[in-house]
Design a protein around this nucleic acid. Structure first.
Lengths: 211, 211, 211, 211
DNA sequence: CATGAATGAGGTTTCATTCAT
DNA sequence: TATGAATGAAACCTCATTCAT
């Protein structure tokens, strides 16, 4: 699979008929399935097509190449997470910090662990592809929503809110990733929301002091 | 590259003559170089051998297959980080929390950013290979060192220290990864040590309160 | 070419479209050609594909690996010989020994020397591959047909017919192999049918006496 | 292993020192061992050297290439069989047919089954290499010994003794090969000498009649 | 639109052979 | 002489992609 510039990564044609939309969806779903059951190395276009109940030819009708397919899967995931996050953040404006963070953490965890398998699959895609650009943009949009929200916090003001939010999100992504990738004891998984809240609030507390 | 069980990942033969040790080292180094310049997808055994100034045949004298090569590189990195961390932790016993964490963060950052390229390459390897087992063991050993250290903290006692340390390390790994993978503004990079300290101490503060 | 268990030797997929049947046949035929012109050592999958007017990829669509290809060729040959032999044997029930053996020898020689090249190629395959199992089964089926026939001989009864037939077929296979492998004087080749008949009848005569 | 003309197949240098003779012998013996335990495909020069307790370099001191090594093994076997056969034949001049054949069959079986493993290994070598020439010469010499013997038979004279001996030896080689290659029931193995005698005498009887 | 047979570049791995030590 | 590290040609096999049906 040769590396391609990202301008070529868009789907080949938009499914205009209902039937096509179903097919495309089946393919995207199949991609995640194969990714999880076989791994990225074993993910071949034929295997994806088979699992989707289609033929390779059909797959290539909708995706110009394998990268575009993987990219589309990633994009769909990003959209979902971003949407959840943005809406939650918007709904939490003008609240105290603790309330805000509790809501955001909840939303983030729900988006990520609602379909753990999907989230797990994404890590593989991101590692393999040239997704730096896309991931950066996605993260930037997510952070923007949090920045906007935190600006309206009733109980705190931050200098350099950008940096603060970077740390917050990056710090959260660590434990979340560890849990999504699996193999953590149940105790840790259960405690995760509360722990993340401690993590965030603790950090914000420290930062506030230095303001 | 077919998936292989990890018991087969050991190097094929230990170099007995002096020159072979040099060769093996050159190959490991070349692997990192190629990983960074070409990416894991484009990393071929021939390319690695060439960059190492050797032939494929030589590469295969020391590594039974590509996976073993990548695995060896990862293992070497793990050893280095683990050693730094363990020594620092051991030297920080019986100190206050803030001192401990400052030392540990410093050591961790030095190990990871001392050779950013190497650290960056590792993320690729981990994503590609079946490294779960190895990574888990490495992380467990690192956490054990921190647990042992924190037990002796002069200014705090923790219930469930295991979970606390899990959160600490996982939380730190987020921002560190973001920075190592590159593309972050210089301001963030510079501020990282202090920010990580805030993150850790803030979290520990929160946890202490609930004890 | 690594040794593989025989359960994996089956063709990969059955051709569903008409053109693929042609392709498969061309590949099998090409295998024999290459086997004879280049020898088993020089038989490479690429060479076979080229000779068949196809590409390696196509070859591997129908045969999971080189062994399976060779095995398929052998199997086809076995089927042909077995069929000829079985039919002839069945048609010769209830005849005197001499008539029976003349018919069988004739059939066997025809099957083997009708396409000497093919037969010759088989010896190479058998030597190279792990064909013990397959060959044994084939031989067993052939012997069974002869046993059934000889039981109905009008002029002889044998104790331990199994052993007798083993000796008959094994004895015949010697000279036939010598001739098929080539380089024997024309005189010997011409005289072969009659000589084989003498061999078989002579042996049966001896065995009868001891009954 | 490229095919080579047979003029190059001679050992590189004759071992003049006793030590060398031991080494060469160990290598030849190791070749047979590897041939039997690993098969011809897996027989590599390094493996042979290891099994012989030497290094590849040493192996190549005595054999210019792999083919020469295999060829030497075959040659040694041929010499042994030929010698046994020739001596027995010479010692059986001026005897009746039955005595002659009994002696020859006994000698042949002893030579072949005395070290079944060795004999079995030979079939592999012969199939793989370009040994036609060498095998033909060996067979010719064996037949010559039998022809000379049979000429002096006290109870029979044959027209075209050459052809008769060809049939005799070829016919015998069938069952012997079957048994040497293994997997035959013990009953058959035990009965082999007597059966071969029946085979030969039966055939000779038939031929005599037609004289 | 859908199919799946065909393609072939390119990747991994082996192993006979050489040659510096 | 003996060693074993190094070589690299060449084999096997995969899989993204195309295109005739």
């Amino acid at each position: 699979m040769p590396q391609r510039s990202q301008t070529l990564l868009d789907p080949r044609k938009s499914p205009v008929q209902a039937r096509s939309a179903v097919t495309v969806d089946a393919i995207l779903e199949a991609t995640i399935q194969v990714l999880l059951s076989d791994g990225l190395q074993q993910l071949t276009t034929i295997r994806v097509a088979e699992r989707a109940g289609a033929s390779v030819g059909t797959l290539y009708q909708y995706f110009p190449h394998k990268q575009a397919l993987l990219f589309a899967v990633l994009h769909r995931h990003h959209l979902k997470v971003e949407q959840t996050l943005t809406q939650t953040a918007a709904a939490s404006h003008h609240k105290p910090l603790a309330t805000m963070m509790a809501a955001v953490i909840d939303a983030f965890l729900q988006a990520k662990t609602g379909r753990v398998d999907e989230a797990r699959a994404m890590y593989g895609i991101v590692a393999e592809l040239n997704t730096r650009e896309a991931v950066r943009e996605y993260e930037t949009r997510c952070r923007a929503a949090l920045v906007a929200m935190l600006k309206t916090a009733t109980d705190a003001k931050f200098r350099d809110l950008e940096s603060v939010v970077f740390m917050l999100t990056a710090a959260m992504s660590g434990p979340v990733r560890a849990v999504v990738e699996g193999g953590r004891p149940a105790k840790i998984v259960r405690a995760l929301p509360a722990q993340l809240l401690s993590l965030c609030l603790g950090y914000l507390e420290q930062v506030k002091r230095k303001n």
